[in-house]
Computed example of a mutant assay.
Amino acid sequence: LVRAFINLRLKPNKDLLSDLINKANGLNRADYTSASLKAIDDVMEKANAVLNNPEATKEEVETAVSALTKALAGLGANPVKQGDKTVSIKTGDETSLGMLMSLAGLSLLSFIGYVSIKRKED
């Protein structure tokens, strides 16, 4: 019993590695440069080998997670070609139309109030 206990070892949790692999597999490859995709592909081979290895150590899993995280962070986006209407660019403008309409209405009411006060004074 003691010998069996000594030979027992904890298997590392591979959930994060699996999630990262799924994220990398779900990438739209047309959006990224070939150089950054090659880096992902190289790391993915090693990460898949670790994921499918039932004897993988905790250090191997952590190394694969770190390498895949770094490769995903280093993805380079393809530049948008002039005239390409398939890619939308986020400008950062999050102002809603309702907010603008409210401000316009408030400005109009203020102007009307100012004009009516001026008429009463004259």
Rank of each mutant, 00 (worst) to 15 (best):
V2R: 13
V2E: 14
N7M: 10
R9H: 04
P12F: 07
N13P: 12
D15P: 08
L17K: 01
S18W: 02
S18F: 00
S18V: 00
D19Y: 07
L20K: 03
I21E: 08
N22H: 14
K23H: 15
K23W: 15
A24F: 09
N25Y: 00
N28S: 12
N28Y: 13
N28I: 11
Y32P: 06
Y32L: 01
T33H: 10
S34W: 11
D41Y: 03
D41S: 12
D42R: 04
E45S: 12
E45L: 10
K46W: 00
A47I: 07
N48S: 03
N48Q: 07
A49G: 00
L51M: 00
P54R: 03
A56G: 04
T57R: 04
E60S: 04
E62P: 08
E62N: 15
T63E: 11
A64H: 08
A64C: 11
S66F: 05
L68C: 04
K70L: 06
K70H: 15
A71H: 01
A71L: 12
A71S: 10
L75Y: 02
G76V: 08
G76K: 03
V80W: 09
K81Q: 10
K81C: 10
K81E: 02
D84L: 12
D84N: 13
T86P: 02
T86I: 00
T86M: 00
T86Q: 13
T86W: 11
V87K: 00
S88R: 15
I89P: 12
K90T: 09
E94Q: 10
L97F: 02
L97M: 10
M99N: 12
M101H: 15
M101C: 05
M101S: 05
M101L: 15
M101N: 04
S102E: 06
A104D: 03
A104W: 08
G105R: 07
L108F: 07
I112N: 08
G113F: 01
G113M: 11
G113N: 09
G113T: 01
G113D: 03
Y114S: 14
V115K: 11
S116K: 09
I117W: 15
I117R: 13
R119W: 13
E121R: 13
E121Q: 10
D122K: 10
